[in-house]
Design a protein around this nucleic acid. Sequence first.
DNA 1: GATGAATGAGCATTCATTCAT
DNA 2: CATGAATGAATGCTCATTCAT
Lengths: 212, 212, 212, 212
Amino acid sequence: MTPIAPPATPPSERQQTILAAALAVFSEKGIAAATIDDIRQRSAASVGSIYHHFGTKEGIAAALFAQGLDDYWARLIAATGAEARAERAIDALLEAHIGWIVAHPDLARFLFARRQAVSPEYEQAIRQRTAGHFKVLFELFKPWFRQGVLRRLPFELYGPLLLGPAQELSRLWLGGRAQADPRLSVKELSGAAWRSLASDATLAATLPQESP
Amino acid sequence: MTPIAPPATPPSERQQTILAAALAVFSEKGIAAATIDDIRQRSAASVGSIYHHFGTKEGIAAALFAQGLDDYWARLIAATGAEARAERAIDALLEAHIGWIVAHPDLARFLFARRQAVSPEYEQAIRQRTAGHFKVLFELFKPWFRQGVLRRLPFELYGPLLLGPAQELSRLWLGGRAQADPRLSVKELSGAAWRSLASDATLAATLPQESP
Amino acid sequence: MTPIAPPATPPSERQQTILAAALAVFSEKGIAAATIDDIRQRSAASVGSIYHHFGTKEGIAAALFAQGLDDYWARLIAATGAEARAERAIDALLEAHIGWIVAHPDLARFLFARRQAVSPEYEQAIRQRTAGHFKVLFELFKPWFRQGVLRRLPFELYGPLLLGPAQELSRLWLGGRAQADPRLSVKELSGAAWRSLASDATLAATLPQESP
Amino acid sequence: MTPIAPPATPPSERQQTILAAALAVFSEKGIAAATIDDIRQRSAASVGSIYHHFGTKEGIAAALFAQGLDDYWARLIAATGAEARAERAIDALLEAHIGWIVAHPDLARFLFARRQAVSPEYEQAIRQRTAGHFKVLFELFKPWFRQGVLRRLPFELYGPLLLGPAQELSRLWLGGRAQADPRLSVKELSGAAWRSLASDATLAATLPQESP
DNA sequence: GATGAATGAGCATTCATTCAT
DNA sequence: CATGAATGAATGCTCATTCAT
């Protein structure tokens, strides 16, 4: 129903070819600047065929989003859910985030360039889907809030504190403005997230002690 | 020389009118989707006049960038440079960042939606200009690195750790996905930045002590 | 490969319609002044269709050129090659030239208004193609040079001496500055060409003798 | 009154500068493609100034035409009128023609690219002026027609036979398609014109005699 | 006379989308 | 399902010309 719902039938080979071509083009020039003809050339499919399968340029973007977004969040949630301690969970979360981006740079570029989204319904659908995923993730953290391990904050701050630095670094890297493999920075990023979210008490207890 | 260099002559009233109209349109629909005709209608100038002054749609964007980017960084640097202690400087930095964004939401939306930038030279010019500003800011922090107050990290991480959470929150707010006034979160954001960058020793000394 | 190479596939009916319309317009106003919309109206095709088939306004001109130039030279060469004696060959050449122009005045107007050609590559391609055709024609004359029937001259002069007067008259006629059917002048024009090119000896032997 | 009449007042220095710039531009790109702005840049005059002096783009062309056309024909007529014998007159005519073109290639390119002429009145004026000049020239030849030295032909043929080859060669040279200095070909061109126009009897008497 | 900002009709070209074969 | 010709609204940009200063 929602524009970015996953398709009923699994994508045919032809569809996959088109999606791959579209992803490449979207990643290079952004959705708005991408042309059906660009996609046609890359995919060696005909215009007619593309329209037969996806109906609209946005339809292609939607299909890619459905595919990418769910995959990304699934990995995030799986990684986080596998850990029992907050600090480790945050480690795993960041590692999953960065790992996924490095594994799918084109898809990441496409997914995280929100601005491009064209129509409002489309934008709306993405937000809801993302919000839903985030809630699931958030549930995993609730026990630690209750235990006082993590600080209670305005809801809107969790995302930024947890993933903001990683997002910023990822953007640099995806845009070619940072060279080093971001996986090398996972420890720092998760460390920052941990310090930002841990309660003062937990944090004090965790910090390496200076010799007296 | 560079595509986003500030103009030789100060902008005339007409030019300011056009720029204001363009900013509104760009902020609403993004550069790519914005139409010269949109700008014409909003500015009540003729197409010819617009082209007479800016030469290209991108020329308008460039003029806005030159104006906005310098203003933003000037405020950041001024605020930071006024503080003597690292923790206070980071506070001031974040406050300036958020303050500027709240004061110029349209310009901010436009400035921070990097993806839109069209031509490579344009993109290139922005990067260099930004990098230059960042270096100036970075110089202000150097003493604290030397004193061991702040941690030494790979260069690429300073930006993300310092501004990543704030950027993420700003994006949410600018996109209408966060309602609360981001200025209310400055303390949290600067706190996070401080914890991320402070050396363990400094941090341990700063944390509120538990009663023994 | 060259911009005016004949197309791989034979022109469809729609393409022919567009070309005919374009020729009419080009002939009337020249390439530069001709409007895609002029062509659209005359051909009853849509802008999109025109661009689908020819890609550019110049693309249409190129297609016309490829068609016209080859046709013109083929006729010239065929007519000349069919004659065994120099004088008759020159007669046939001029007759073919004038005949073709009278048969295709629009195409001729278009073909011989070289100045219009816009882009350099285009101009270049036309020159090469023309030069090639001229070489073929020139080969047919070689035996007569060897036999001393025709005079040896700087290469650049053959064209002007052979076709210069005819070209000039054609231009007048095509431009409406000469009324009489140019076919009536073929004998004079070929006579002039003959006198210009024949060696003195041959010419003396050919001239009508005065009574002693 | 006519669009290409010579101006009442002699051109000021500023006007001359503009005309020179315009000629350069017209010669390079043709009248149609030339832009007022091109001329403005080359002449370092302002748009306003240009319009103040010439009123229209075509006004500039007209001024150049008036200047060039008269100069060209004056030279032709003077050279021809100075000769007493037909063959010498034709020699002188061709030499003047080629000489003028070599001396003013830009002006020649501009003058002889008739097709460019834009408005009908303009075209009309040029034709009349040219026809007038030609008539004057023709008068000079009349005695030789009466004496039977030159052949009587349809009026429209005199131009082509006399100047056709030279025009064709000039076009090649002006367009860079012929390298050799056309002045080297004057003898051949005038020879051709002479042979084309001389009566058979005269011609027979003139031809170098074969040894008996 | 000179200047250059302003005007707006006009134009080539692009591109998503449709549909007959 | 595939193909690609056809459509036409939309868009960035140009350019001759005007006119207030």
